[in-house]
Nucleic acid binder design. Structure first.
Lengths: 202, 202
DNA sequence: CGCAAAACTAACCAGGTGGTAGGTTTAATT
DNA sequence: AATTAAACCTACCACCTGGTTAGTTTTGCG
């Protein structure tokens, strides 16, 4: 009989968090357009008018859901200790892919919303454009170091490979969501990296 | 003052085709859930009740749109002449990727709908599961032959590479739709294939 | 406690949804 | 030209959409 969020913050903050949890879960399950504020509110245990007391509208809910996940993932990637070697960072990417296989809902959210967001009028369009630019920049930087450090140095174009790596991971998620038994995302990514001459941990 | 479809089929068939064209375009632009039958009907020049005279419901419209594109693409891939060498087939895949860069709408349709369709309750779920299984089987068969034919034979696992190739193409589409200037899908696919030791035409 | 602010609700709004019923127009066939 | 069937439209249905308003309950603090 204990509260799920026992005693942190005011009531408002707790409700707000509960709403974000519900929105994340439902957006993950069915996408953005297909989920109503009433669905989310009911799942969070209030009315949709009550929900709108905490968020100005549906769109703001979406972008908060997205950026909240970025915060969580970002901490994982950069680490609080800023001192992570490029090799360790690569392993973290692989780990993240493996971890994603435990949260199909969240993976689905990104697949679905990034699909919808191709439309420039979509509320999350700018968010995703920036997100992928950031991901490419980060991955490109990392791969550049790893290629140069290898013996002998690997001649690949870090930018091009970064794009491919991100595309591979995204595309694997699509296939995996549709047919989980047929796709081992982690193995596929490792195979890809090995093919390049890199050596992620088993 | 000639008709756009000058003289083929009965009026009903022509209207049906017009509806499918409109549905394809609008689904491509905004996804499945976000488009209404009235939108499609208006675009095709009739009322939504008139549309429902030709199609039993919205879902059937979607699956007809999807399978119609498969027919078109299928003809391109297999060719009416069944005699295409594996090398030529690989080139066709690359060509298809390049051609996709001319039809962002259709590409968007697949990205969006395949995202939505991860939900087992989605009307197109089964369609996509089967589609990817088919694609993997086809690509796996093709790559197997190409790997064996190479001198020396390439040691890759055709099934794994097929999965990666499809994932790469899908993922590139997501990035390309969001940021067309930053992504050259054709070049990325060619780089990937070269990396494997294959030699698609320039 | 008292009391103001925050949290929440019930009721409502205008507009859109897929789908249906029944009648009218249009096209094809004899 | 007459007849039948297909094509199509108007009007409607019940329901859902995001959002607003005005009022009520709950919370936390001095």
């Amino acid at each position: 009989m204990s509260e799920p969020t026992p005693r942190r913050g005011s009531k408002g903050e707790r409700t707000r968090a509960r709403i974000l949890d519900s929105a994340t879960e439902l957006f993950s399950r069915s996408g953005f357009h297909a989920v109503s504020l009433r669905d989310i509110a009911a799942h969070a245990g209030l009315t949709h008018a009550g929900l709108l007391h905490h968020f100005p509208g549906k769109e703001s809910l979406l972008i908060e859901v997205l950026s909240r996940r970025d915060e969580v993932d970002g901490e994982l990637m950069h680490g609080r200790d800023v001192e992570l070697s490029p090799e360790e960072l690569l392993d973290r990417i692989v780990d993240q892919v493996a971890r994603n296989m435990g949260t199909p809902g969240l993976v689905g959210l990104y697949v679905k919303i990034s699909g919808e967001a191709a439309d420039p009028g979509h509320p999350a369009h700018d968010y995703f454009v920036k997100r992928y630019r950031g991901l490419r920049r980060q991955a490109s930087w990392l791969l550049g170091i790893l290629f140069a450090r290898s013996t002998p140095p690997l001649p690949h174009d870090p930018g091009a490979v970064a794009q491919q790596l991100i595309a591979l991971i995204d595309g694997l998620q699509t296939q995996w969501l549709l047919d989980p038994d047929q796709v081992d995302m982690r193995a596929a990514v490792i195979t890809f990296l090995r093919q390049l001459g890199l050596d992620p941990k088993p």
